[in-house]
Nucleic acid binder design. Sequence first.
DNA 1: TTAGGCTTCG
Length: 619
Amino acid sequence: MLSTKGPGTSGLDGKVPPSAKRTDKQVQYVPLNELKVGTVVNVYGVVTFFKLPFSSKGTDLVSTLKITDESGAKVTCIIFGKTIEDHPSLKEKGDIVRLHRFKAESFNDSVTLKSSFGWSVVTFSGVNNSPIVPLTSSKKVSIGEFDERKICALRQWAADESLFCQSSKTTLSSVWDGTRCEYPLQSYTVASDAVEGEDTEAKDRRNLTAYILVYDNHLEVARDLKPGMFLQFYNLRAVLAKDLLPNEPQHLTFHLHSGTSFGRSLRRLPDEALEQHKDLNDDEVPEDVGAFCTRPEAVGPSYGRGLRRLPDDSTHEPWALEQHKDLNDDEVPEDVGAFCTRPEAVGQVLVKQQDLNKDEVPKDVGVFCRQPEAVETDSCTVRACKQHHAQHFTLEQVRSSTPPQLCHIRARVKDYQPQQLSQKGQARVKQRFLNSMWEADGSRFDQIHRKRQFVFMNSHEELKFIQGTSLGVVCASARCWGRVIPVRAVNEKMALMDFFAPFIFYRGKRFYGCQKCSLPEEERRDFFAVEPLDLLKIAEALRVQLMEYRFLLQFELDDGTGTVDALLWENADKIRKTMDTVHPPDKPLEERPWMDLCLFAYTVEGNVCYQIVNTKVKE
DNA sequence: TTAGGCTTCG
């Protein structure tokens, strides 16, 4: 059964068969070589060329594409639509489109198809044997057997004809991967007040960021770009600038010229694209990301979220602001986030739990209940923890009690963090905070040590040691190169940084070593003996015990008498899934469910901390 | 209505 709804109205043109009892068989598709000028038709075709939607001189966005089918005819299609969502979601040449209610017109002695009253377009991947999933903003598209047969046939035909055997796209590594460009990249002087984000002129960022000059019509897209967005450029031109000075190397420049010729355009990729790509190796970057994809540091990075997440006490550590203000969101170290913890207390808590006795506690009307061995009472909503003697406290009493103190509380969730799951929402066991090691190291070196892995064709896998540069540069380097170990010079020998700093950066993530469990520096093996196979092996070779990331939730609890910020380690990942229940975003605090919790108060370095323990989600 | 592919601020 076909049910489509185009971006125009859903009315039917009289020249299309009525759809009262429409089925697959009743939708007629016209081969592209049989189009008659003046008729409104439905067609299937393989895309051989397309331009992304751009602003017409009228009121709509317009996109153009050329399609072909088994008849061999090639037909240009013009689509007008108010919004970007109205237009086909084309990814690459070879995609298959199903056009409904397009009018055949004559232009320059050729037949063209133009979106007509009630038109619709659906896109499918042209990859043989790939799932047949309609790509459309319309939710009402369903695909019948006829469509599947038609799409399979077109895919097979395109494959047999080798229509797209030569990729129209250029891989990152074959053009520029940010590290191996033969030429230095051209930089430009831009007025500081015209730039959003950091200055990319720093010498140590050379060839890690690229300026791209964007002209005329492309400003419409470019002016809305924000740092951190993932971009796709079509028909980006790389030009070697003429020698400015004798003996100076030629510089490479990038231009997105005026107009839309050859599909020239710029678009933002959805955030998922970044998620999909940031874990890939350089030479695994999919071809469909176009001629060039790069994190647009050249546009200027964002640091708003990073700053917002700094804890209050970071004001006592100005280096934290200084060091992180130039980072992109995914570079913000989790340890300067809202989840600074006092994990030393974890062991303390665990020990103390063993001594707990059973206890009678108030009725549980929330979705949490205390454990272990929670026992059902008369009410099906009630469970009680009978494991220990903790007293029931109000939060006011909790705050005025002297730690260490184990107690039972009943409270509501006023707020919690993290609301978005990422590495930032995790805490490293045993790791407290990042110190100022980066600056403490003092001197800045430009030297980068490289340790090649085994020689593979097309392999970009290397392990880099980087010395004496800023955290921002290390992060940027890791994004380009994959694995970067920050090092310092000790008695003219390369040595690891203090373990308060990350031991290794792996693309967007950073991994820490444990000060206690790793071998001291003097017993470390020669760095160049390391075979960079994987993170664990690298750590093992350098005698570093990697720390483990643990998911951590921080609650702001409220019971009417006071509030308490409490951390949760145990079952945090499971409890996170209940947050919509215990913290419904559309309900005021008074209407949120109560939770019965077991709370442990303890001190770390003179500060009182609270941790939720012995608590689990009620089944 | 608009665009109707078909290079560029070297």
